[in-house]
Structures are given as structure tokens and as C-alpha cells.
Computed example of a mutant assay.
Amino acid sequence: MRIYLQTQVAAAESPRYYDIILQQDLLGGWTLYREWGQQGGRSSSKREVYLERDDALTAFAQARDAQVKRGFRVMFSQGLEAPHAR
């Protein structure tokens, strides 16, 4: 699963982005990757590992919801169960 979020484009600066990716690993666990920053500028990332699918999906939804509350908009989503912004 993947969701790419972005802020409104302002004339003075590049938009900020937040990319959230959830992948199953080879051992059956789940890894949540997050990357954020300003397009064309510096970025940061974080990786979290979950043993249970439900825990990983909950973390994915919480990460998405937190960014939507901060004003980010979903620009792209991918995956059979790609959640949509509320």
C-alpha cells in the first residue's frame, strides 16, 4: 500500500510532501515506511516494523489521518486496500 500526500502549492515555495508505504516482508511481518520533506529539498524518513497486519494497518491509517489533519491532501494511492482520506 502506498499513499502520497502533498500540501497546497504556494507561489513562493515548493510544496511539502508525505509518502507512506506499507509492505509485507519475507518473514510475514509488516514494515511501515514514511518519508517527508519539501519537494526539491531536504527530506527525512522513518521505518517501523510490525508483526501483526492489523497493527500495521492501524499505524498506516493513523499516519495518514495525522497528515490530513495538518492540511495535506491525498495525491496518489496504490494498493488493493488503499485507504482513502476521510
Rank of each mutant, 00 (worst) to 15 (best):
R47P: 00
H84N: 12
L26C: 06
R47H: 03
A63I: 05
Q67E: 12
G79K: 04
P83Q: 04
L57N: 04
S14R: 13
P83D: 05
L80G: 12
Q39Y: 12
G71H: 02
Q6A: 15
L32Q: 03
L26F: 12
G40I: 02
Q23C: 09
G71P: 08
P15C: 14
F76M: 15
A61F: 13
G79Y: 10
G37H: 02
R2S: 02
L27G: 13
K46Y: 03
S44R: 12
S45Q: 11
Y33L: 06
K46R: 13
Q24M: 13
K46E: 11
Y50M: 03
P15S: 10
L80C: 09
L26M: 11
A82Q: 06
M1T: 09
V74K: 05
A56M: 07
D65Q: 14
Y33I: 08
D55Q: 12
L32N: 01
G37T: 02
T31W: 01
S14V: 06
E35T: 04
R16K: 07
G29E: 08
E35W: 01
G41F: 04
G71I: 00
A82K: 05
W30F: 15
A59T: 10
G41A: 15
A82L: 11
M1Y: 06
T7L: 06
D54H: 08
T7V: 05
R2N: 03
R34C: 09
V9N: 09
R86F: 13
S77F: 07
G40H: 02
